[in-house]
């Protein structure tokens, strides 16, 4: 509803003034957040900050995952990645006065998130990026904007509904991941695969009993196949997703936290969740409280 109204408004605006700064956010993405792109955003920031530069340039490069449905996923024919992480990116971009179509998306995989930030290849990393002390040594991580934990993805007719049930079953995840290690400790037989999608295939074709990793990732796969898959068990670890930025630009942290807090209060965060991970059928959780930024 809100979306349709916005489009009309946007069209009217375009007709009326043809303003370049005007955004019709989300019009490509039928169900994303309708971010309101700030006008004259550059004026809002102090001189010398990275935010001011970005707002003036009107360009923002964001690293996201391309292979995690619901979180960050880009099909071969898609123009832009979709998922909860890109939605968060759009919210942040809008505050800089940058419309979604002006965001440059860059695929990041787990191994190159820090290098990309350190080299300035990307401005932000929003890529199911768990906040850890080790990572905070080398990059900045603002947030968490989402808290998830390790859970299980099983066939919709599976009997597994508590962590005790995994003993002796075959559970897949990505080879060498902490999730696989954790589930092995619970007495499951670990089955490592190269990618999550191969692992999901194993669950779908019945070769293994369950897949395990962060609940957010599992929800994304469940959302793709809500009739055949479900996410079960209480999270048995805590993963706090943060927005990565370069330690050379510490002022970014407070801006990220403020902008996301605003989005949580305005309901944009909820909308982003419902349009992405929420499609798996889970209730929209309470947005998490964010860490204080380190003193500059």
């Amino acid at each position: 509803m809100r979306h349709a109204r916005f489009r009309v408004a946007a069209a009217a605006l375009l007709l009326a003034g043809g303003l370049a700064a005007c955004g019709d956010a989300g019009s490509d993405d039928a169900e994303g957040v309708d971010v309101e792109v700030a006008e004259n955003a550059a004026d809002e920031f102090e001189d010398g900050t990275r935010m001011k530069e970005l707002a003036e340039d009107g360009k923002l490069v964001i690293g996201v995952k391309y292979d995690q449905p619901g979180i960050g996923f880009k099909g071969a024919t898609d123009d832009a990645p979709a998922g909860f992480d890109p939605e968060i990116g759009k919210i942040l971009a809008a505050d800089l006065g940058i419309a979604p179509e002006n965001i440059t998306w860059k695929e990041t995989i787990s191994d190159n998130r820090e290098p990309f930030l350190e080299s300035g290849e990307v401005d932000l990393v929003i890529a199911s990026y768990s906040i850890t002390d080790e990572r905070r040594q080398v990059v900045g991580q603002a947030g968490p904007y989402y808290v998830t934990g390790q859970q299980l993805l099983v066939g919709s007719d599976s009997d597994i509904d508590s962590i005790e049930d995994v003993k002796g079953t075959e559970v897949c995840s990505v080879t060498g991941s902490t999730s696989l290690e954790n589930i092995e400790a619970e007495g499951a037989r670990p089955r490592g695969f190269d990618t999550y999608s191969e692992c999901v295939d194993q669950v779908l074709n019945g070769t293994v009993d369950a897949m395990t990793t962060d609940g957010a990732i599992l929800l994304g796969y469940a959302a793709e196949n809500p009739d055949r898959l479900k996410v079960v068990v209480e999270p048995f670890s805590e993963e706090r997703y943060g927005v990565g930025y370069s330690l050379d630009e510490p002022e970014m942290c407070q801006w990220i936290v403020d902008t996301l807090t605003e989005a949580q209060e305005s309901g944009d965060w909820d909308t982003a969740f419902e349009a992405t991970l929420g499609k798996s059928g889970v209730e929209t959780p309470e947005p998490p409280a964010m860490d204080e930024c380190p003193a500059a």
Partner: peptide
């Protein structure tokens, strides 16, 4: 086989390098 569900030497190596 390390990336096809078999925890042989290479898969176990990844576990250790991860930690």
């Amino acid at each position: 086989a390390a990336v096809f569900g078999i925890v042989e030497a290479t898969a176990r190596m990844r576990y250790f390098t991860n930690n």
